[in-house]
C-alpha cells in the first residue's frame, strides 16, 4: 500500500498556505514534517486527514484495501487536542473510541489495559481523564492510537507536552507501528527519534 500526494496546495481564506507539495509514502515508512511556526505543517496534516479541502492536487492510496475512497478512512489523526472527555474515566474514553472507530482491515487494536501499559500508565484507566496531568493526558491520547487499528497515523506535534522519558516511549510506539507495516506522518519541532524517516521541510511563503 502506498500513499500518494500529488502537487497539493491549500489556502486559508485568501492566503495560500503551501503550494505544490508531493511525496510518496510506502508501508513501513515515516515522514517527518518540519518547519517554522506558520509554515503550514498543521494545515498540511489536516488536508491529509480530510478535514480541510485542498485547493488543488490530490491525495490517494495505491494498492489499498478495496472500498476505501480517501486515505482518511484508514488514518488516525492526533491533533493539538486530545479528543478525550475530562468527565469520563480513561477507560470509558478509550473504549468509546475503540467501539466508535472500529478497526481498519488488516489489523486489530489491542485491549485497553495493554494500550495503557504501552504508554506507561497501566493501572490508572479507572480514573477520570480530568485527574491526569497534561503529559499523562497526552500519553493516554496516544493510547487511543493503539486501541483501534489504523495503518496511517497522522500526528500533529505529538510530543509537545511530554518529557524526555515519554519522548523515548513514544518513539518506541512509532517504531513498533512502522515494523508492523504502518505509516506515520508527523509534524514536529523536535526529532522524534525515528531512525530512517523521510523529511519534508515546509518553508512557508516569505511575505
Amino acid at each position: 500500500m502506498r500513499l500518494l500526494v500529488e502537487s497539493l496546495s491549500a489556502r486559508r481564506g485568501e492566503d495560500l498556505i503551501f503550494h505544490d507539495i508531493s511525496f510518496v509514502l510506502a508501508t513501513g515508512e515515516a515522514l517527518v514534517v518540519t518547519g517554522p511556526n506558520g509554515s503550514g505543517k498543521s494545515t498540511l496534516l489536516r488536508v491529509l486527514a480530510g478535514l480541510l479541502q485542498a485547493e488543488s492536487g490530490r491525495v490517494s492510496l495505491k494498492d489499498g484495501p478495496s472500498g476505501v475512497e480517501h486515505p482518511r478512512e484508514l488514518s488516525h489523526y492526533l491533533g493539538h487536542r486530545n479528543a478525550m472527555k475530562r468527565e469520563l474515566t480513561v477507560a470509558e474514553n478509550l473504549s468509546f473510541w475503540r467501539r466508535f472507530l472500529g478497526n481498519s482491515p488488516g489489523g486489530s487494536g489491542i485491549d485497553l489495559a495493554a494500550a495503557a501499559a504501552a504508554v506507561g500508565l497501566a493501572g490508572i484507566i479507572h480514573l477520570p481523564f480530568g485527574y491526569l496531568s497534561a503529559g499523562q493526558q497526552r500519553r493516554m491520547a496516544m493510547a487511543k492510537l493503539l486501541v483501534a487499528y489504523r495503518p496511517i497515523w497522522i500526528l500533529d506535534e505529538p510530543t509537545a507536552a511530554l518529557d524526555a522519558g515519554a519522548d523515548r516511549l513514544f518513539a518506541g510506539l512509532v517504531a513498533g507501528h512502522l515494523e508492523r507495516g504502518g505509516m506515520v506522518i508527523a509534524a514536529t519541532h523536535q526529532s522524534l527519534g525515528i531512525g530512517q524517516a523521510k523529511t519534508l521541510q515546509m518553508t512557508g511563503f516569505a511575505h
Binding site: 486527514a49 480530510g50 478535514l51 482518511r72 478512512e73 488514518s75 489523526y77 491533533g79 493539538h80 487536542r81 486530545n82 479528543a83 478525550m84 472527555k85 475530562r86 473510541w97 466508535f100 472507530l101
Partner: peptide
Amino acid sequence: DGSLDLMLM
C-alpha cells in the same frame, strides 16, 4: 477537545 475532527474523519 478535538473529538469533532475524529468524527468528521
